[in-house]
Amino acid sequence: MPRIARVFIKTGLIYFLASLLLGLASEFNWLQFPGMVPLFWHLLMVGWITQIIFGVSMWMFPGRTREEGFKAQLWGWLTYIFLNVGLVLRGIAEPATYLDEGSLWSVLIVISAISQVAAAVFYIIELWPRIQSKEQRRRQRKKKRERKKAKNEK
């Protein structure tokens, strides 16, 4: 399993635990804080489910690069960074806005929202070209081989 998939899955597991703890805490009046319920749902659906889908699909879907590293898997790592920066900022800033209407929290919320949309775009850039039929994959591999051959002949 490539490092990026492991990181996505392990981060997802942490959100899974955190979301369920939050869900449990929301049942006790003395543990509640504002914005808790939407945060619970988003940690569960984005932090856990979407994150594990991202990680597993980057690993299991055809056409992944075998090379490890940030540059080799640029769009995958950008997806990871932007998704989690967005989620963490939301986790901090959303409850904070209910307690203090400072402009800092508003800015962080906007950054969080844009960051998560950016993650969705980066994921599509990474995965979209990999959704191919066997025939399309064969043709793509053939083209790659021909390009490599032509390069070596030069």
């Binding site: 988003h42 939301r90 959303e94 806005t97 929290w105 508003s106 919320i109 906007v110 969080s112 929202a113 844009i114 998560q116 949309v117």
Partner: peptide, 10 residues
């Protein structure tokens, strides 16, 4: 979702 989140502060 991003638009809804932003609307919470605007």
């Amino acid at each position: 979702g991003a638009m809804i989140l932003i609307s919470k502060v605007y």
